[in-house]
Amino acid sequence: MSDKNPEKGEVSRRDFLGLAAIGTAVLSALGVLAGVLRIFKPDVHFEESKKFKIGKPEQFPVGTVKKFDDKKLFVFSDEDGFYAITAVCQHLGCIVYKTDWGFQCPCHGSKYDQMGNVIGGPAPRGLPWFKIEQLVDGSLVVDASKEVPKGTKYIYV
């Protein structure tokens, strides 16, 4: 009695109306799911611009090492020009501090040399360098959204 009419079950499952109905239901479910997942990503972030003025070149005479605490980066000036290195450790995001030989992360002991290359500790990669540009009025601008190869310095003319 419990297994009556298996053929009928087969037929009704293959029935067009049933298939179409279930199909649209599944499709709409996928659509709703996609929409739900998309909602989690807003179109904008509430962060300040990654690009910011740091001042005029005169403020950075050769040999300057200046840390911008709120921007989490170091700005250097040497004979070859200006360059900016992030202060964010590439291991787990702590803030490194400057030492005689380079940078030291206080959290898990990552060590970087003067160029930001890893010389010890768990960090998987060196500290990235950011692009420096100059505005028409002469101010230097760091663009922390753009990385440049290590050793790229902005030459002030």
Partner: peptide, 10 residues
Amino acid sequence: KDLKYVVFGG
């Protein structure tokens, strides 16, 4: 307001 203007489908 943000939900309305900058969230997809918000």
